[in-house]
C-alpha cells in the first residue's frame, strides 16, 4: 500500500506548480531612447560680394539661403533649440566691423529672424519634442560707405540642443 500511494501524491503537486507559474509570469519590454541631436547645413560658407551702398544697402549672400535640417530626439515636451553665435566680429587685418551687421530672415516652422552676435548665442529656431525640422536662413550684410576696404571674415557656430 505504501508503494502505491506515494507516486500519486507526487504527481498531484507537480501539476499544481505548473498551473501557478503560467498565471503569474510577466515580461516588461523597455526600449532605451536617449536624446539625440543631428544638424545639417547646406553650406559651410557665406559670401557677401562688394556692392555700392547707395544701390545695395543690404547685401544678400551670394550663395542664397542656407538650408537647415535639425533632427532631434528629446524628452517629451522638452524644448529643442537651435542657436548661432559668432566667434568674433568681422575682421580684415586691423579693420573690424561689428558682426551685428549680419542679419537673417528665416523660413520654416519654428525658425525665427535674427541678428548675429558675438556676445551671446542667438536663437535660430525652437521646437517642442522630437522631430525633424527643416528651414532656411537668408543672410544679409549691412553695406555702408563708412566700412574700411577689406575682405572680412568671421566664423559662425550653430548649436542644436536636445534636452
Amino acid at each position: 500500500m505504501i508503494r502505491l500511494t506515494t507516486p500519486v501524491l507526487v504527481l498531484t503537486f507537480a501539476v499544481a506548480f505548473e498551473v501557478a507559474a503560467q498565471e503569474s509570469a510577466t515580461a516588461t519590454l523597455t526600449s532605451t531612447m536617449p536624446p539625440i541631436a543631428r544638424l545639417s547645413l547646406s553650406a559651410n560658407s557665406l559670401s557677401f560680394p562688394d556692392a555700392d551702398p547707395d544701390l545695395v544697402p543690404q547685401v544678400p549672400s551670394s550663395g542664397g539661403p542656407i538650408a537647415i535640417t535639425a533632427r532631434a530626439r528629446a524628452q517629451r515636451d522638452a524644448v529643442v533649440t537651435l542657436t548661432v553665435q559668432a566667434a568674433d566680429d568681422l575682421r580684415s587685418g586691423i579693420s573690424v566691423l561689428p558682426v551685428s551687421l549680419i542679419t537673417w530672415t528665416a523660413a520654416g516652422p519654428g525658425f525665427v529672424n535674427g541678428t548675429v552676435s558675438r556676445s551671446a548665442a542667438q536663437l535660430v529656431g525652437t521646437w517642442v519634442g522630437s522631430g525633424v525640422r527643416a528651414g532656411s536662413q537668408t543672410f544679409r550684410f549691412e553695406n555702408r560707405w563708412t566700412h574700411p576696404v577689406g575682405v572680412y571674415t568671421v566664423t559662425l557656430t550653430y548649436t542644436l540642443t536636445a534636452p
Binding site: P35, R38, S45, F48, S92, Y152, T155, L156
Partner: peptide, 27 residues
C-alpha cells in the same frame, strides 16, 4: 540602464565661415 541616458542633454554643432568683401569706391 535607461534612466541615465535620458537625463543627458545632447548637442550638435556646425560651423559656417562668413566673408564680406568691401572694395574701394568713390562717389
Amino acid at each position: 540602464l535607461s534612466s541615465a541616458p535620458v537625463a543627458a542633454q545632447q548637442t550638435a554643432t556646425a560651423n559656417v565661415t562668413a566673408t564680406a568683401s568691401v572694395n574701394a569706391k568713390a562717389k
